[in-house]
Design a protein around this nucleic acid. Sequence first.
DNA 1: CTTCGATTCGAACAGTTGTTTGAATCAACT
DNA 2: AGTTGATTCAAACAACTGTTCGAATCGAAG
Lengths: 219, 219
Amino acid sequence: MSAVRASVASDVDTRERLLQAATRLFAERGFEKVTVRDIVAAAGANVAAVNYHFAGKLGLYSEVIDRAISLMQGAHDGTRDAPEGSNAEERLRLFVHSLLSLVDAPADLDWVYQLLRHEMENPTPAAQSILRRVMQPRMRYLCQTIGELTGSSPEDEHVRNCAMSVQAQCYFVRNMIRMKGRLRAAGLAEVASLSGDDLSSVAEHIVRFSLAGIATPPQ
Amino acid sequence: MSAVRASVASDVDTRERLLQAATRLFAERGFEKVTVRDIVAAAGANVAAVNYHFAGKLGLYSEVIDRAISLMQGAHDGTRDAPEGSNAEERLRLFVHSLLSLVDAPADLDWVYQLLRHEMENPTPAAQSILRRVMQPRMRYLCQTIGELTGSSPEDEHVRNCAMSVQAQCYFVRNMIRMKGRLRAAGLAEVASLSGDDLSSVAEHIVRFSLAGIATPPQ
DNA sequence: CTTCGATTCGAACAGTTGTTTGAATCAACT
DNA sequence: AGTTGATTCAAACAACTGTTCGAATCGAAG
């Protein structure tokens, strides 16, 4: 089974070409808005190739998702290589900048974010593993960081609420960027400070806004 | 053309039944995941009825969206009937509670929110009018309120950023509620304080968190 | 050269989609 | 009763979907 692929060189070609084309298209449009024929056309392969190599469209998609998750876990995703001695505030800032794609990651991870967003909006059977392997570690890291800022446990309710608030702002800004064109057309260019497309100023706002909220627990 | 519908009484029946069935289904699944046959089955009508009364699936959808927008503008959507003498903080609190469906609106508007969310995630030609007629007034109202809190203009950048932060948290919480089942299955039940499903405590967090952030402008 | 398995390919399949058609039905008016 | 126009209906259409089939192609081992 596995030795088969290794022995022949040419099939790795079209298998890999299929994976790359599918990755790009799935990231752009999501699972359902991409047809098998779109993929094979982009990859220069035959319609039957997807079923031959991946046992169906969903098999191909699952492999794309798996690759994306691995890539995101391996690369910097805001939960790694924070300078060890750095304080919690600096780690929060790094987290926000990372989610806004403001730190130049080793690999371009924008397509991964697009892929995961599509999966959250229109879930396929792959959604569970994304939640478990991407969202959960991210949430844990963020709660840890905020817990340090408030001097309380990562399980504290205020800490968890604040983690929610931080992530909410980051994802929202990403969505605003994605809809920039539509927003401008609707006369809403000023919504998310997209005028000056300087994303770092928005990131700085999120950090400042959140630090203030974190420092203001209930009662 | 218009006198036609008024003269006959029976057609208002199936036309109305189609609209109601379509509204429910579109709100549940979004435009593309509902088939014309789903709608006519739920309405007890013939497949051709949609094309006869609405000139196609998109025509029916447009009318559903138009009704939703009107309903949302007419009813309490957090941008109306705030007690005239109330201060800005109380209006911000009302806004948050409203976006979290915590104030009992005259009509149940949850299906409208679902409809609009689907439209933002998978836009059809109707998206523009939603942005213009729903999002823009909401943003204006929120900027006005926050501007009062900081004593600055609604066009101030910090004010606009804060308005973004407030809305981001509200929409995020709505999404978390929607994915409650999937989150729990992935071991993320604690993400958005869904344990105690007391939404008001989350709403209170958003208000407190945001007031602190609003009161902390740059520099 | 032949054989054999893996791979590619064009063609077709079976199912679903939104839409159209033309006849049937119905209600109201003459 | 007869006519008219709006409405309903079953049937079919045309386009598209993911998938399957069988023959053709290819590369290397015997």
